[in-house]
Design a protein around this nucleic acid. Structure first.
Length: 477
RNA sequence: GGCUCCUUGGUCAAGCGGUCAAGACAUCGCCCUUUCACGGCGGUAACACGAGUUCGAUUCUCGUAGGAGUCACCA
């Protein structure tokens, strides 16, 4: 058997959305799993939809996520060029070949005539009007400079069947197939045509794509048959949904890969999560490295039904990846979220240590630590804690002593600070909580904070710690 | 509307004729604990419906319902 060759063929119309990224990922994984090649081809036959910079986003995203293509526009290969607009001169000849063999024909119908065709529930079916034109008439009209398109001549009877690796055998009546346009009046091929020609020319023998192509695949197969080419293996994939009714899409303002990164998700977590959307490994693994994904990926694990993108589960996975980062990596990655805020005034390492195990996405950082800079009047009821058996009265008694203990600390770090508090508790013959709880409340005015009293004191510094203690004491009187 | 596909807990998702119907996220409770978080333990929660086939259906078949895709000189 010849080497497996898969491809990812996006249109440069903007960000690479999650669905597209998953298609690329699966195609890549499947190729690599089978020692095959993964090819990137840019499908830009619709000049009207071309978006500046979109191609670069595709390159960058694939590189960043590790989905490396063996052949593509910017890496070369033996089957280039890999950008369809640069191949436009090839398609017409193939279309003409089909005209010769009777599988396609010239069509001169105007937009008006097309619009006058009977409307069946919002859809108009071309009536093969130009199929009956004589060869002479066709030549004369072309010579006269009349605009034309080339249409595929579909059989009107019978049916065509093909096998899809995930959906099984798909059979469609030929009468359902429209005489689709192969070459547009601007001379460019339609996606439907260029796609088949290029896949064949590039030796693609495995086509992985979204389910939206499931029912038009017979048209492509008819093209392969007309040319006498071998049909590729097809793997269609279910859509990724935003909710039960709506597909995830850029148009709906749903997150693209880049948006997710900006929201503080790690690329490894994103890839790991989308690999799991619509596919599951035999052994039930969830957190997997890219290497493990390559080992475990298999088309039998691909699901048939749509799956809903769950940002909550993504966040959970993200938190797992965050926790295993080294403090240095975490600090470096968190830098943008820290630089932009008041947090830059604090010791970076201490702040990072405090939050690394407490965030699921980096975007949570500023809000989570706002209390480090915001402090003011708070409800003395916060001193009341059932479990620690503390209340405002106790705080009033103990806070001045806490202040004294802190003042005596020579080296201002968490360890010493904590020891000072514990020692105070011991000398007062109290449980640690009776000191620790009021101390933390006094320092933050918050029922819940990341970290405890001593950690927070360490970060805000001695001066601020004492200032807050004075404030809290004053507030109790 | 025609055609094609899909349907297991709130979500992801195992299962491929016989299971007390896995696991994960979320949720709830307990433990740990300096609050929060982490971690540990446990609970709640599902085979869309109706017929068949079968000794036996979540698994097979057919209907029904619901959902998705498609029906472009867009990809």
């Amino acid at each position: 058997m010849s080497q497996l060759r898969t491809r990812f063929a996006p249109s440069p119309t903007g960000y690479l959305h999650i669905g597209g990224l998953r298609t690329a990922l699966y195609s890549y994984l499947y190729a690599k799993k089978n020692n095959g090649k993964f090819i990137l081809r840019i499908e830009d036959t619709d000049q009207g939809r071309y978006v500046e910079g979109a191609v670069e986003i595709i390159y960058r995203t694939l590189r960043e996520t590790g989905i490396m293509y063996d052949e593509g526009p910017d890496v070369g290969g033996d089957f280039g060029p890999y950008i369809q607009s640069q191949r436009k001169n090839e398609y017409l000849a193939y279309a003409k070949q089909l005209v010769e063999s009777g599988h396609a024909y010239y069509c001169f119908c105007t937009e008006e005539r097309l619009a006058s065709l009977p409307d069946v529930n919002g859809a108009r079916r071309y009536d093969k009007h130009c199929l009956s034109l004589s060869k002479e008439e066709v030549e004369a009209r072309i010579a006269a400079g009349e605009k034309y398109v080339i249409r595929q001549n579909m059989p009107t009877t019978g049916n065509t069947t093909y096998h899809d690796a995930v959906y099984g055998d798909i059979t469609i009546e030929n009468s359902e197939l429209e005489d689709q346009i192969l070459i547009k009046s601007d001379g460019m091929p339609t996606y439907n045509f260029a796609n088949v020609i290029d896949d064949h020319l590039m030796g693609i023998n495995c086509v992985m794509r979204g389910i939206e192509y499931l029912s038009s695949t017979p048209k492509y197969n008819l093209l392969y048959d007309a040319f006498g080419w071998e049909r590729p293996m097809y793997i269609h994939m279910p859509p990724i949904m935003k909710d039960a009714q709506h597909k995830l899409s850029k148009r709906n303002g749903d997150a693209s890969y880049e948006d997710l990164v900006k929201k503080g998700f790690l690329k490894d977590a994103i890839i790991n999560y989308i690999a799991l959307l619509g596919w599951s490994p035999k052994d039930d693994s969830e957190k997997m490295t890219f290497e493990q994904l390559k080992e475990k990926f298999d088309i039998v694990g691909i699901n048939k039904s749509p799956s809903i993108f769950d940002p909550v589960k993504l966040a959970w996975l993200n938190s797992l990846y965050i926790k295993e980062m080294t403090p240095e990596d975490f600090s470096a990655y968190a830098a943008p979220w820290i630089e932009d805020t008041y947090l830059k005034d604090f010791d970076r390492a201490l702040v990072c240590k405090l939050i690394q195990s407490r965030i699921e996405t980096f975007a949570e950082i500023p809000e989570k630590l706002r209390f480090l800079v915001e402090y003011g009047t708070f409800d003395n009821q916060l001193y009341t804690n059932q479990k620690q058996k503390t209340d405002a009265a106790l705080a009033k008694e103990v806070l001045p002593q806490i202040k004294q203990a802190f003042q005596a600390v020579e080296t201002w770090d968490n360890q010493n600070l904590y020891q000072a508090l514990v020692a105070l508790a011991q000398s007062l013959q109290m449980k640690n909580g009776k000191i620790l709880w009021p101390a933390r409340i006094a320092l933050t005015g918050l029922a819940a904070t990341p970290g405890g009293a001593s950690e927070i004191a360490e970060i805000i510094g001695k001066e601020e710690t004492l200032r807050r203690l004075d404030f809290a004491i004053a507030q109790l009187n």
